[in-house]
Structure formats: C-alpha cells, structure tokens
C-alpha cells in the first residue's frame, strides 16, 4: 500500500465527512426555530397552569363567600315568618337557575364512541362519523329528558341551564363554554321511571344509537348528584316589561 493511496483515500473520506458535518450544521440551524418554539410552548403551558391555579383559588374563595352569605341570610330570617318565606323562595329560584348543587332521584346515562370502529374496520359505504357520539345526539337526549319531566340535567359535570348551548367544536363538544368528550355521562333528576322509559323504550333513541355501535347504558339511581352552574348568567340586555 503506497503512502499516496492512503492519503487519497483519507482525503476522500474526510471530504464525505465534512459534507455530512456541514449538512448537519445547516439542518440544526434551520430547526433552531422549532426548538425555541417548543420552549415558548412550555412557557405558555406554565402560564396556563398558573392562571388555572389562580382561577381555582378565586373560585374556591367565591364558594366560601357564597356559603357565608347563605348562612347570614338564614340567621337574619330566623325569627321572621315573611322573610323566611322569601328565603325559601330564593332557595327554590337558585335551584331552578342552577346556582346550587342538587341531589335527588333520577337516571344516569352513559354514551361512549364505538370502541371497535376504526377507519379500516368499517365498510366502504359506512362512515366513521356514524360511530361517534355527536352534539345532536346529546341535544336529542337532553330534549327527551326535559320532555319526560327532568328537573335538572348535567353533561359530564356541566349543568344544563337556560343559557346552555351544546355545540360541536371539532372533535369535542362544547357545553357551557367548556369542552366535554366521550364518554359522556348525562345525569338527570326527575321521576326515574318516566325518564328511563323516555329513552329506553323499544325504538327509542338509545336503541338507535346502539344500532350504530355506540355503547350506551342507563340506570336509575336514588341519589343523582348534579353540580351547580359554574359560569356567569348574563343579564345585560334584558329588562322587566312595564
């Protein structure tokens, strides 16, 4: 092996090596932006967590204040019949408005997207969308429940109040400005047998959903717990008619 040959081979190898190094440096330089992007993303995530903590703190202090207010009101109306009546009315109105946690007899409905449906498993004539729970399905069930005399309804912990909307946003459903997704747990307080029959009857809505592969279950319960509405009820434009 002559020395020249060795030198030429090493020279060629070094050339390949430098080409690779320069390409690598260029590539990394081009992706520096992505790195800083993820850094910014992390910071944003931190910020969101901090904000959420502050929100939770504020929310819990609001809850305490409300409890205190209720106590004070009760004490103030203890010895006066007419104001005790008013107090009872306020309580009832708050319950109806969705401002209090409720419990009572009712039903619990669970809806879950078809677990066996994938893009490959369904036939050509079918659509994956048929195997998912949609906002319209939720609206239908809420409507049926109300029709059957439900007094209070919640969807995945979101109380249904007079201003509640149930809207599809992408792959989740928006209820009361918060996102809920499968599995959906719909709770309703009312006469359990009626609520049950409204949905569970042969040819009823749950059976229809079942036929698409959506997993549904409904059960009666003596103690359904429904949380209060966590949003703000706006009354900016409405006025009492006179």
């Amino acid at each position: 092996m002559s020395k020249n040959k060795i030198a030429i081979t090493l020279g060629i190898v070094c050339m390949i090596l430098t080409i690779a190094i320069v390409i690598q440096i260029n590539t990394i330089k081009g992706t520096n932006e992505t790195v800083s992007q993820t850094l910014a993303e992390d910071e944003l995530r931190d910020e969101v967590l901090r904000m959420k903590e502050r929100y939770d703190n504020a929310y819990s202090s609001l809850e305490n204040a409300e409890k205190e207010l209720a106590q004070v009101r009760e004490q103030a109306t203890q010895n006066d019949d007419s104001s005790a009546e008013k107090e009872a009315e306020i309580k009832l109105n708050n319950n109806l408005l969705g401002l209090t946690d409720l419990e009572g007899q009712g039903v619990e409905i669970t809806l879950q997207d078809d677990p066996n449906a994938t893009v490959d498993s369904i036939s050509v004539l079918d659509q994956i969308s048929n195997h998912l729970v949609h906002d319209s399905d939720i609206r239908m069930i809420v409507n049926e429940l109300k029709n059957a005399g439900a007094e209070a309804i919640s969807i995945n912990g979101q109380r249904v109040v007079s201003t509640t909307s149930i809207i599809c946003i992408g792959n989740v459903i928006k209820v009361n400005d918060s996102r809920v997704s499968s599995p959906f747990v719909i709770k309703a307080i009312g006469f359990p047998e009626r609520l049950m029959t409204a949905l569970d009857r042969p040819g009823g809505f749950l059976e229809e959903l079942n036929s698409y592969g959506i997993v549904t279950s409904i059960k009666k319960s003596n103690k359904v717990e429904i949380p209060k509405y966590s949003g703000v009820i706006s009354a900016k434009y409405m006025r009492t008619q006179n």
Partner: peptide, 22 residues
C-alpha cells in the same frame, strides 16, 4: 502528505456541503 490530503478533502467537502440542501 496525509495531513495535506485531509486538509484538501475537508475544504472541498465544506464547499460541496454548503451547496447541498439540508
């Protein structure tokens, strides 16, 4: 001779590498 060859190889490689897309 070895080191001259390596140096030339490195320079040529860097020149080619700059003009190659990442």
């Amino acid at each position: 001779m070895l080191f001259i060859a390596i140096l030339i190889g490195c320079i040529v490689g860097a020149l080619i590498g700059v003009n190659i897309p990442m």
